[in-house]
């Protein structure tokens, strides 16, 4: 009896340990493989980032960024060397041509995934980076290609960073930090740096988003007063260093109106001027499919107890939208609700 139960327990233990897919051993092996892959890819990214700043990475810089002990870093770099992806010289560690290609692939997966999370899953800006840090190591080339096509081959990630192309090229950012931009001249936000997280949160709190027009109203020694959407915000210079801006070009096709559908009061009418540039992917398609294309007449039809959502009259139908979506529809308001008809 006793022997039997010991036998059964032993068999169970063996199964739990060694089952081909779900066994602890197999899980542990998978985990090890994933960890090795993610470490070497993170190292490649770090070396690439330093090269973009015209610096060479070192064992110390790697250990610092990745939070690893020197021995572990040494193992990672040795692995990269065997794969022919890096060369270490006197000044530090440099990427080989194939190593740079590989690093850009990882960056590409990361930024496309951020785009996907933002466009399709509506994830807020602050949560994109950590999620993409995990996903970038497990996406296959095939998956990345499909994602790219599905998203319509986007050129920038939600922060404004350029996405590397499949052939391994990447366009330059061509933007300067907000600190260097002359006061008074309007600029377009090209990029928001998402690391360190604490600074990024400050930027998000000030409601800054890529593709917004910003104007430095006042330039102090430690802070800037910037104007966005007619509202002024005070930003520390250290924060402004993480905001990159560029000249507004005619092909940006920016809507000049500042009124949004969410600003209209009940009974008011307007004409759709366009959709906000930061509304992308599925949510953009939804709004377009509702018929909210430029030139369409919209009327605020219904409020409810909580003031959100509200219903709008569009092309002969009544459609309810949450505030978050109504904010993304830019509007040219009609002077008064009666008598003003849209020109065809």
């Amino acid at each position: 009896m006793n022997a039997l139960s010991i036998g059964v327990a032993a068999a169970l233990l063996v199964v739990i340990l060694a089952a081909p897919k779900f066994g602890l051993l197999a899980r542990w092996k998978r985990h090890r493989a994933y960890r090795a892959k993610s470490r070497s890819e993170d190292a490649l990214k770090h070396i690439l980032a330093w090269q973009h700043r015209s610096k060479l990475a070192s064992l110390e810089s790697l250990a610092g960024t990745m939070g690893l002990r020197p021995a572990a870093v040494l193992r990672v770099v040795a692995g990269l060397q065997t794969a022919g992806w890096v060369e270490s010289g006197a000044g530090g560690i440099a990427l080989t041509a194939s190593g740079e290609r590989r690093a850009l692939e990882v960056v590409r997966a990361h930024r496309l995934w951020e785009r996907h999370l933002s466009d399709d899953a509506n994830m807020p800006m602050g949560k994109l980076h950590p999620a993409a840090e995990r996903a970038e190591h497990s996406l296959s080339r095939q998956q990345v290609a499909e994602l790219d096509a599905h998203l319509g081959h986007p050129q920038h990630d939600p922060h404004g960073d350029p996405i590397p192309r499949p052939d391994g090229t990447i366009s330059a950012l061509n933007a300067v930090s907000l600190n260097e931009w002359p006061a008074g001249r309007p600029a377009l936000i090209a990029h928001l740096e998402d690391e360190p997280q604490a600074v990024f949160r400050q930027i998000l709190l000030a409601n800054l988003r890529p593709m917004q027009v910003v104007r430095v109203a006042e330039s102090g020694p430690n802070h800037l007063a910037v104007e966005i959407d007619g509202r002024q915000h005070r930003i520390e210079r250290s924060t402004a260093a993480n905001i990159h801006v560029r000249e507004i070009r005619p092909q940006d096709a920016l809507p000049t109106e500042r009124t949004r559908l969410s600003d209209l009061v009940q009974g008011a009418c307007g004409e759709v001027a366009g959709l906000s540039p930061d509304c992308q992917g599925l949510s953009r398609r939804r709004l377009l499919d509702l018929g909210l294309t430029p030139g369409t007449r919209v009327e605020v039809a219904l409020d409810n107890t909580f003031g959100d959502p509200r219903a709008f009259r569009v092309r002969g139908t009544t459609v309810a939208l949450r505030r978050q979506q109504a904010e993304q529809v830019l509007i040219r308001p009609f002077p008064s609700s009666d008598g003003a008809e849209t020109a065809p």
């Binding site: 499919d289 018929g291 569009v314 092309r315 002969g316 139908t317």
Partner: peptide, 9 residues
């Protein structure tokens, strides 16, 4: 028939 424009899409 009451919202033809929207439906024709």
């Amino acid at each position: 028939a009451t919202a033809l424009e929207r439906n024709l899409n």
